[in-house]
C-alpha cells in the first residue's frame, strides 16, 4: 500500500463526547445519527440532537475530519416525514454525507438536495454490481457500504464493475441477518431493528444471575441464553442466543457472540479497491472508541509504511472474547 492508496478510517460515535474522542484519535470521518427512529442505533441516552450535531460538524471540520450522518433505517407508512426532516436538518448544518438505506429516501434526497453526497447504507443490502450501479445511476450514490457477506475476492469484482467508492466494515459487531431486514427482534418485541432502529430494545431485556453466577439473558418472555459462571457473555440479541432443538440442545442456531476483526485482511481490502474502512459500534463507550480508533489509525499508517502492526489487544473489546474474519475470508466461516 502506498500513500495514495491509504484508505479513510470511518469511526462510530453515539454521543458528542465520543465524536470528539474519535476525531482526536485520528478518525478521517465519523458517522452518527439523530435521536429517534431514523438511525439504526436508536438506544436510550444515545445519539445527537440537531444542535449537538451542528456543533459536532464544526468540531470535526475544524480538525480536518468529516461527519457522515446516518439516516439508515426504513420509514414505515405514514412516518416518512420524520426521515425527510432528518435529511433536511442534516443538509442544513453541513454534514459531509448522509448514509441512506431506504430507496424512497434516496430518491427524496437526490431530488431535493441535488449537490449533497449520498452514501448507500449497509442496511440497503446492495451486494451486486448491478444493484449498486442502479443506485448510482438513479440517485447519484457516491459510496456504497457493502454488506458483510462478500469475500475479499468478490469485493474486488464488485469494485471493478461499479461507479462509486466502497466502504467496508473491518471491526465490531456482526450478525447473520440479511443486512437491512432483520425481523427477529420484531417478532418478540413488536419493534424492528430496521424500521425503529432498535435491536433488542433495552426495556425488553432482563438479566438474571443466580447464586452461582450463572447468567440468564431474556428478551421479553423468552430466555435467549444461559451463560455459566466464568463464561464470557454477549449482546442480548436473538441472533446470538442459544436454543434447544429436537436434534441438538443449547446451540447457537444463528450466530455465536463474536466480533468481526479484519486487521490481517486490511492490505487485501485496500488492494481490492476499498476506499474507506469502517468500525462498528455507535452503542459503545468512549473507552472503546479511543482504543479501537487509535489502534486502527496506527495499523493503517503502519501498513502504509510497509510495516506490520500489532493490534492484538483489541480482543479484549470483542463480544464473547471471540473474533472472526467472517465471510470476508471464506463463505464457510461458521
Amino acid at each position: 500500500m502506498d500513500k495514495e492508496q491509504k484508505p479513510e478510517l470511518i469511526c462510530p460515535a453515539g454521543t458528542p463526547a465520543s465524536l470528539r474522542t474519535a476525531v482526536d484519535g485520528g478518525a478521517d470521518a465519523i458517522y452518527c445519527g439523530f435521536v429517534g427512529p431514523t438511525n439504526a442505533r436508536n438506544f436510550p441516552g444515545l445519539n445527537f440532537s440537531l444542535d449537538e450535531m451542528a456543533k459536532s460538524v464544526l468540531y470535526a471540520h475544524d480538525r480536518g475530519a468529516k461527519l457522515l450522518c446516518a439516516i439508515n433505517s426504513f420509514p414505515t407508512a405514514g412516518r416518512t416525514d420524520i426521515w425527510k426532516k432528518a435529511i433536511d436538518d442534516a443538509i442544513s448544518i453541513g454534514v459531509d454525507a448522509v448514509i441512506i438505506a431506504d430507496i424512497g429516501m434516496a430518491d427524496y434526497m437526490s431530488k431535493k438536495h441535488t449537490n449533497a453526497r449520498i452514501h448507500l447504507s449497509v442496511q440497503a443490502g446492495a451486494s451486486s454490481a448491478e444493484s449498486i450501479n442502479f443506485y448510482c445511476e438513479r440517485f447519484d450514490i457516491k459510496r456504497v457500504v457493502l454488506p458483510r457477506i462478500l469475500t475479499v475476492a468478490e469485493i474486488k469484482k464488485v469494485h471493478d464493475a461499479i461507479d462509486c467508492e466502497i466502504e467496508a466494515f473491518i471491526f465490531g459487531n456482526i450478525g447473520m441477518m440479511a443486512e437491512g431486514r432483520c425481523s427477529l427482534t420484531n417478532y418478540v418485541t413488536g419493534l424492528s431493528t430496521n424500521m425503529d432502529g432498535v435491536c433488542s430494545p433495552a426495556n425488553f431485556v432482563h438479566y438474571e444471575e443466580d447464586e452461582n453466577r450463572n447468567l440468564t439473558t431474556r428478551l421479553g418472555e423468552f430466555a435467549i441464553d444461559c451463560i455459566g459462571c466464568g463464561q464470557n457473555a454477549g449482546y442480548p440479541t436473538i441472533c446470538k442466543g442459544r436454543y434447544n432443538a429436537t436434534h441438538r440442545k443449547g446451540y447457537y442456531a444463528f450466530e455465536e457472540p463474536i466480533s468481526l476483526n479484519l486487521t490481517h485482511l486490511l492490505p487485501d481490502l485496500i488492494d481490492a479497491g476499498v476506499t474507506a474502512l469502517k468500525i462498528e459500534g455507535r452503542q459503545r463507550s468512549k473507552a472503546y472508541i479511543k482504543s479501537v480508533v487509535s489502534s486502527f489509525r496506527s495499523a493503517i499508517d503502519a501498513f502504509a509504511k510497509g510495516e506490520t502492526p500489532d493490534i492484538s489487544d483489541l480482543l479484549a473489546l470483542t463480544e464473547g472474547h471471540k473474533q472472526t474474519e467472517g465471510a470476508f475470508l471464506s463463505k464457510k466461516w461458521r
Partner: peptide
C-alpha cells in the same frame, strides 16, 4: 468499556435495562 466489562463478567447488572443503558450513555 462497559460492554467489554459486561462481556467479561466484571460487572453484573439486573433490573430495568433501559434505565441502565440510558445512565451509561
Amino acid at each position: 468499556d462497559s460492554d467489554a466489562l459486561f462481556f467479561n463478567r466484571e460487572i453484573r447488572v439486573s433490573g430495568d435495562s433501559e434505565a441502565m443503558v440510558a445512565l451509561r450513555n
